Simulated assay, not measured.
Amino acid sequence: MLSIGAVAIAAGVTPRVVRYYEQSGLLTSERTTGGQRRYPESAIERVEFIQHLIRAGLTTDVIRDQLSCVNSRIATPDTIAKLAAQREFIAQRAAELNRMEQRLGELIDSAQATLVTADA
């Protein structure tokens, strides 16, 4: 079992983020007799996964709703439909980011073509 600090360091977040995920129902811990949180090794991967989903644009509420099927290993047709909708949301977001990357590339190319150097 790992301390909150160990999970945070391994997952690349702060202990505050780990605590927030637990308060939000995204993560669970056991408590020592002294009241300290202890997490299984799998908590590291879970925190990293949550971070990826948040960066993709999902909210903690959506993640909590969808992760319930991961925890229970039971998926209903409704859960599958919701997961598919989230996958589509992420795909649309990825396409939007790709378009923005292309536009920034064009802007960089244009700026480089008109670049005035100090020697000129």
Rank of each mutant, 00 (worst) to 15 (best):
T28F: 11
Y20R: 13
D61P: 04
A56R: 01
A8G: 02
N71P: 02
T14Y: 03
Y21W: 07
G5Y: 09
D65K: 14
I50V: 14
Q86S: 09
A6D: 11
I63L: 06
T33E: 15
S72H: 10
R31Y: 04
S29D: 04
T28K: 05
I63D: 01
L83T: 01
V62Y: 03
S3W: 04
T59A: 09
S24M: 11
V13F: 05
G34E: 09
T79G: 10
T59F: 04
Q23S: 11
L26E: 04
I9Q: 08
G5F: 10
Q36Y: 15
L58N: 02
R87H: 13
H52Q: 13
T59C: 08
F89M: 07
A81L: 12
V17A: 13
A91H: 11
E30P: 00
I63K: 02
E88P: 03
C69K: 06
A75D: 08
S72R: 14
Q23E: 15
R73E: 15
G35I: 05
I54P: 01
G35T: 10
E22C: 05
R73S: 13
V7S: 03
I80S: 02
V7I: 00
E45M: 02
R73W: 13
Y20I: 08
P77Y: 03
V13P: 02
T33P: 07
I4D: 02
P15A: 07
I54Y: 00
G34V: 10
Q66W: 07
P15V: 06
F89R: 11
R38I: 14
V17I: 13
R73D: 14
C69W: 09
Q66R: 12
Q86A: 07
G25R: 03
G12F: 01
D61I: 11
T14P: 01
A56C: 13
T28E: 12
C69A: 15
S68E: 15
V62M: 10
E45I: 03
S42V: 13
A43S: 08
R73Y: 12
R64F: 12
V18Y: 01
A85I: 05
L67V: 07
S72V: 10
T32V: 09
P15N: 04
Y21Q: 01
Q23M: 09
P40C: 02
Q23H: 08
I4K: 06
L83S: 02
A85N: 13
A84V: 14
R16V: 07
